[in-house]
């Protein structure tokens, strides 16, 4: 069974937001609702000034706090390691949103539930890649199987030493960032 993860190379991100809208369309989201964000951070003084664009989305933590606190069990981890929300049992209590240290969950006011990035699991199961990956003009994202040492993502992580955001929070995220 694969264990899906993503690698993100922020040195290639130009903040164009293609991923955001691709995801919104794929998942039929309203314009205000998104599973993807791009934050930026400026550092230094010219000539060493730099601005980094950092794409953010659900980290699909191995030890997912959102899943632990979900009273209804609507949040679950799929067999591929993808953290999903069962739209039929979520009541919209938003406890998961408070529990997520990355703040990557959103309320879907159309359904009245809390939603998040699903790694486009229906596309992936059909042999495709998540919408944010395939649309990215600068190929910032690599999606694949973390269990397979020969997958592109595993090699990328091994070569670049990409790390999750705030690994010290102890949630074991499955999105790895190369940031310099």
């Amino acid at each position: 069974m694969p264990r899906y993860g993503m690698a993100i190379d922020t040195t290639k991100c130009i903040g164009c937001h293609s991923c955001r809208v691709a995801c919104q369309n794929q998942n039929g989201l309203d314009y205000k609702e998104t599973f993807n964000w791009i934050k930026n951070r400026e550092r230094g003084v010219y000539p060493s000034f730099d601005k980094e664009y950092i794409p953010l989305q659900c980290n699909h933590c191995e030890n997912a706090p959102c899943q632990r606190v979900c009273p209804t069990g609507a949040t679950f981890t799929s067999k591929e390691g993808v953290v999903l929300v069962n739209p039929n049992t979520c009541v919209g209590c938003k406890y998961c949103m408070e529990a997520c240290p990355y703040k990557m969950r959103v309320v879907d006011h159309q359904l009245g539930i809390v939603e998040k990035c699903r790694f486009c699991i229906e596309l992936v199961r059909a042999g495709g890649t998540p919408a944010c990956v395939s649309t990215c003009p600068t190929q910032v994202r690599i999606f694949g199987d973390l269990n397979d040492p020969n997958s592109e993502i595993s090699k990328f992580i091994a070569q670049t030493g990409a790390l999750p955001l705030r690994p010290d929070l102890g949630t074991s995220p499955k999105i790895f960032y190369k940031r310099s």
């Binding site: 293609s18 955001r20 691709a22 369309n25 314009y31 395939s134 649309t135 003009p137």
Partner: peptide, 12 residues
């Protein structure tokens, strides 16, 4: 094979 934010959004 790539599409930008405008390409996606202007469908609406």
């Amino acid at each position: 094979g790539r599409v930008c934010a405008k390409g996606h959004a202007l469908l609406h």
